[in-house]
Design a protein around this nucleic acid. Structure first.
Lengths: 132, 132
DNA sequence: CTTGACGTTGACGTCAACGTAAAGCAGCAT
DNA sequence: ATGCTGCTTTACGTTGACGTCAACGTCAAG
């Protein structure tokens, strides 16, 4: 039972890779680029909740089409030191830039979706005019 | 005023490139991949409204993180023949797939934005606790 | 008629994001 | 001890999306 701070569930590289639907090579690639930094038990990589969280953020960033180095600056932002006032102000500025970027994407996305809806409408009309 | 079908405004490659903020090499690359097919006046490329429309769609697709060959299938869809019933049904099916993809992206995007908002909130709280 | 300013076609270079093969160690089941 | 399985590093290959020449055509201006 030992109630120490043993929130220490860990995973192997195969486990996280399979869980997130990527290869171990991909996971290691992200480590090479400094996106995740698993500990080592001897020579073996040990992944914790923090690493899985970051991996999730990375993959979502990829689905959104961000390059990996940009993704790194984004998720590093979440872990950045925010002790001093100047640091916090810097972080808040970065947040604003990020939001502007994301909102541009959402506009593009919404435009694409409404166009698609209009196009579907036209197709359905065409279809309704075809007999049989 | 000569009312012929002279909706024939044209542009050169430099013009469209500059207008859309890309290089002529990029425009030619898209042509190599069959994403746009400008006519030729002799050997020179001639761009019309249709090409500009497609270029706009391509670049929006890129901002959304789609690969170029996927973008081609998407915008080709808009120009696909829809004469027969089977063709229309195929197109409608493709539209559904596209929409599912785009909506997944929007979910990711909204998640990212709400997380960002929460994070900003925390930063502002931290900031309010710092004197001076 | 030469000189730019643009246009054209190759062809090779580059960078990101991995894939893939080669070779080795580490534990442990037989 | 031996082999198997899973993890490791090293290193070169691949694909997508262009960049970057080089070498040449063309047409209006001087």
């Amino acid at each position: 039972m030992a109630s120490r701070s043993e929130d220490e569930q860990t995973w192997t590289i195969r486990e996280v890779a399979e869980e997130f639907g990527v290869t171990h090579r991909t996971v290691r690639h992200y480590e090479e680029l400094g996106l995740i930094t698993p500990e080592r038990r001897g020579t073996t990589r040990v992944y914790r909740r923090r690493d899985r969280t970051r991996l999730g953020l990375i993959l979502r960033g990829k689905r959104l089409g961000f390059p990996l180095d940009e993704i790194r600056t984004i998720i590093d932002l979440y872990d950045a030191p925010r002790g001093r006032r100047s640091q916090l102000e810097y972080v808040l500025g970065q947040i604003d830039e990020r939001r502007a970027d994301l909102e541009q994407r959402r506009r593009d996305l919404d435009d694409a979706l409404t166009e698609l809806a209009r196009f579907e409408e036209r197709c359905r009309e065409d279809l309704s005019r075809i007999p049989r």
